[in-house]
């Protein structure tokens, strides 16, 4: 279960040496917010939501043409989640998520670049109970966003990023209890960090 945490470390370690001078690598910290995970009706409506969570992102990208790069980006987030019913909230514990996106980026204007990718997200609850009684799911993820960079040192850039991603959420326990389909979950994140590599 520690493997998701190793991905960013491996990317950073591999960045300068193995991938060479054409590789751009970066790390950022920020916050991520997500839409409702589960909607249920027990007497009245219940919504399960994640709180805004701190996150850390690391990634690397390699030039595939003068303007475009292909890359991988891994993000870890950890925050609480709660159930809301009739205006009251019940804390349900902590969820960690690990997501990986493989994608492309390209120029928009000056130091701003777009990014889009596909990948997966792993939910890793602090306790196997409630909606996660049979563990956390792994779901497909699609996302995109924009990066802005500004040189701050000879080889380092300040990097500010906004991301949006989307996946469909359900768990084995919800399916066992007769929940059908899956909940569309949107996540938005803002982060800031440092990037090193090609400009």
């Amino acid at each position: 279960m520690l493997r998701p945490y190793l991905i960013p470390a491996l990317l950073l370690a591999a960045g300068p040496g193995a991938l060479g001078a054409q590789t751009d690598y970066y790390a950022r910290v920020g916050v991520v917010g997500a839409s409702t995970l589960v909607r249920d009706v027990l007497g009245t409506e219940i919504s399960v939501r994640q709180s805004i969570a701190p996150m850390v992102t690391a990634g690397a990208a390699m030039a595939i043409s003068p303007e475009y790069r292909a890359g991988i980006e891994a993000t870890l987030a950890s925050g609480g989640f709660d159930a809301e019913q009739n205006g009251g909230e019940t804390a349900l514990g902590t969820i960690r998520t690990a997501s990986v996106l493989l994608g492309l980026d390209g120029p928009i204007w000056r130091s701003v670049r777009w990014r889009a990718g596909l990948g997966g997200i792993l939910y890793w609850p602090s306790e196997d109970r409630g909606i996660f009684l049979q563990g956390g799911p792994v779901r497909f993820l699609a996302g995109g966003g924009a990066d802005w960079r500004r040189p701050v040192m000879s080889s380092w850039d300040l990097m500010v990023s906004a991301r949006y991603d989307f996946h469909r959420f359900t768990t084995d326990e919800l399916e066992r209890r007769g929940f059908s389909q899956a909940q569309g979950v949107s996540r938005v994140s803002l982060s800031v960090g440092l990037a090193r590599g090609t400009r």
């Binding site: 249920d40 009706v41 989307f166 007769g178 929940f179 059908s180 389909q181 899956a182 569309g184």
Partner: peptide
């Protein structure tokens, strides 16, 4: 893909 929501039993 984008619009369907989870349906409670």
């Amino acid at each position: 893909l984008a619009c369907g929501d989870i349906a409670a039993p």
